[in-house]
Simulated scan of single mutants.
Amino acid sequence: MDADADEITSLVGREVYSNNGVFVGEVEDIQLNLDAETVTGLALSELNRDLFSPEMTGKKGVIVPYRWVRAVGDVVLINDVVERYDTGEPEDEVAV
């Protein structure tokens, strides 16, 4: 396995926080574009129920676009746009 694959799989299990420090969820899987060989999204589970209640999502997780990722270290930081989530599903965010 090459180094890039090791880096991608290391994202699984990391906690995700907004850049304001609010816990969002935990990375369960990675969404890839195999043709372009790029990461396109992070599938999150163990969601913060204050942000994503089951009544709002109707699902157990969400996929956030990878372009929202600001930094990756011990945790993943994403833009705070997820904190403004409402009952309508934005076109960039898909429930899983």
Rank of each mutant, 00 (worst) to 15 (best):
A3H: 09
N19Y: 14
K60Q: 06
V96C: 00
G88C: 13
T57I: 02
D86F: 07
S10K: 14
R84G: 01
D6G: 11
D86W: 05
D2A: 06
A3I: 10
E26D: 09
G21K: 07
Y85S: 01
A95L: 05
E26G: 03
R14K: 15
E83A: 11
S18Y: 10
R14S: 13
V82F: 06
D50E: 04
A95C: 07
S18W: 08
Y17I: 07
A3G: 10
V81P: 01
A36V: 13
I8G: 11
E89R: 04
T9C: 15
P65M: 04
I78F: 12
V94D: 00
T87E: 00
L77C: 08
N33I: 07
V39P: 03
T38W: 14
R49H: 03
W68I: 04
N48G: 03
S18F: 02
R84N: 09
P65N: 01
Y85D: 02
D50S: 01
A5K: 11
F23V: 10
D80W: 06
A5D: 14
L34R: 15
A95Y: 11
N79D: 11
T57V: 07
S45N: 09
N33G: 08
T87L: 01
T40D: 09
S53R: 08
V75Q: 12
D2Y: 04
D74M: 15
A71E: 10
P90Y: 04
V64M: 02
M1I: 08
S10T: 14
L11V: 14
G41N: 00
W68E: 00
A71N: 14
V94E: 00
Y17L: 06
V62Q: 02
N33K: 08
I30D: 10
V12P: 00
V76G: 09
V82C: 03
D2S: 08
A71V: 09
R49W: 05
G61D: 00
V94H: 02
P90M: 08
Y17C: 01
E15F: 05
D74C: 12
L77Q: 12
V94A: 00
M56A: 08
V69C: 04
